[in-house]
Design a protein around this nucleic acid. Sequence first.
DNA 1: GTGAAAGCGCTAACAG
DNA 2: CTGTTAGCGCTTTCAC
Lengths: 336, 336
Amino acid sequence: MATMKDVAKRANVSVATVSSVINQNKYVSPELKERVLKAIEELNYTPNAVARSLKKNVTNSIGVILADILNPYYLEMVKGIDDVALEHDFNLILCNTSNDWKRFRTYLNLMIEKRVDGLLLANISDAEDLREVERSGIPFLLINRKPGGYAGDYVCIDNFKSSVLSVQHLYEHQYRKISFFGGDPAISTARERKEGFLAAMEQLGLTVYEDLVFSGNYTRDKGYELAKRLVERGFRSLPEAICSSSDLMAFGAYKAFKEHGIRVPEDIAIIGNANSVFSEDFSVPLTTVSHPTYVMGRVGMTMLLDKIKNPTAAEKVQMEIEPTLIVRRSCGCAWK
Amino acid sequence: MATMKDVAKRANVSVATVSSVINQNKYVSPELKERVLKAIEELNYTPNAVARSLKKNVTNSIGVILADILNPYYLEMVKGIDDVALEHDFNLILCNTSNDWKRFRTYLNLMIEKRVDGLLLANISDAEDLREVERSGIPFLLINRKPGGYAGDYVCIDNFKSSVLSVQHLYEHQYRKISFFGGDPAISTARERKEGFLAAMEQLGLTVYEDLVFSGNYTRDKGYELAKRLVERGFRSLPEAICSSSDLMAFGAYKAFKEHGIRVPEDIAIIGNANSVFSEDFSVPLTTVSHPTYVMGRVGMTMLLDKIKNPTAAEKVQMEIEPTLIVRRSCGCAWK
DNA sequence: GTGAAAGCGCTAACAG
DNA sequence: CTGTTAGCGCTTTCAC
């Protein structure tokens, strides 16, 4: 592959001149410029970004660390990140930890070795996991997840609010006995959604029945299992509505109810969370909460680039993006 | 950030020795090794992969170019690619072209500048688009899509077969008048699915009604629109079944039929394609064809790494992975 | 076994 | 304005 030296030789100029015309940061006479451009063309020369990175100590690449790439929830977020990155000529190095701590460490180390200019971490629910990142000195920003009470920079969805919206809507439907299907308490978003549920219940003066509040994970199977458990306690003790922390659990719950002849929303209402693809095409169009993940990605990447450009800026950037309720049918709207 | 020189100084050895202990490619006496390791620890030294890349002319990174990252179809594929990459200490640079030719060129150029060791292209349906890639000399492999009659290396799903499976299954249900909802003919997978449909129809001796064969795109809206068109021609002229090239179009078609009181599968059967997430939770559990995209990703990355390791290997690697039929309810199974 | 030194391709003083 | 040159941090001969 042709190098700058080759170009310089062919154009009969110095490498400095070649560099100047490529970077357009110095005046070069039209004649020389012409010659250089011609040589570049003829040699099919492409600048070597590796060499440039070594020299300038900047790689124009960002490491994006995700807990689970199979989760469609992250799709729009990644697109938002990527769109902004490209606008600034940055590249994304994708790191999927598969919720595996060892994999996380491996990736983190690789990112440090590769000298990424910044790190976007979407997998941190525990401050402990940040130790190594901080030690590296690489600018970073938490996105989507964050440890409780985290004082550093982050951008995320207001998960607390997402549950509040759900509970309020169910309340307006006159439901009073509401069950909560929560996620994994090890994950910050799940903790926040639960807190939102409890706070909303209290604020509305509703009784929280301990045996109707569940933790688990965001999967369909878990929703199925929890609903099944509810059903087995007897039809009479069923809650009037379910506030689910994920759409997937809502899907699973529906399946369990259906198997037992319990109708949604006639016998029991359900609200999901996160507005996943296809939730509209669900057996009963799912009422859920929409999370602006694309915006989160864009904002996150923008904030990170700011930090990189301006590392000394003291002000913390903490941002929570507002979710919105998407009313469809599973909550009982258009039925009652 | 500490460099090798710093480590060498602190350990009172030469940089060559430090390099040797890091790469473990030369004998170093236990004492020196000990000292070096200690210095590395104390200085929190991390090797600079940029410098190494420059010297070794190898970056350990692969550019993955996708047409549309929002399409969940690619999720498992990317995971397959990433899993294999990590096993070999490679990183993925994610490039989402958003079906934009200019973006593709921009990314391609960036990948060449960054001197990726290989390119995995999931967006090529036209040989023309490969010109620049070939000129770059970077090892590459087409994945998922490929130009018709492409003679280079690729791995993809047998899309032809996916339609054949669908038609055969519909045939077994005694459906004879079958409509085809196709994708964008500019995309290779759509072309292949259509060819498979036509071939299967012919092979089974079924008549292909020109006005029941549609091209469009894989979206839900398009499915809705096409079904609507069908309905407006009159109930009597409706086909018995629809072979859809995508699940999304099947979802859209269902919606249109439902609005007109046409039942699936009682009045008309539908088979989707690609087994998207949630197709099981669809209003009528969708019969569809499963594409082993994770396997495709793994195989693709493995093949590419082989090419990188062994650039002179003359043999072409062309692989088509078999899809499988997923029978659920929309085809009429468990009803008739 | 260990170290000195050249050089990967580029940028950025610094001279001229 | 243009060219010379010293590195960026690392690997790898080649001597000792």
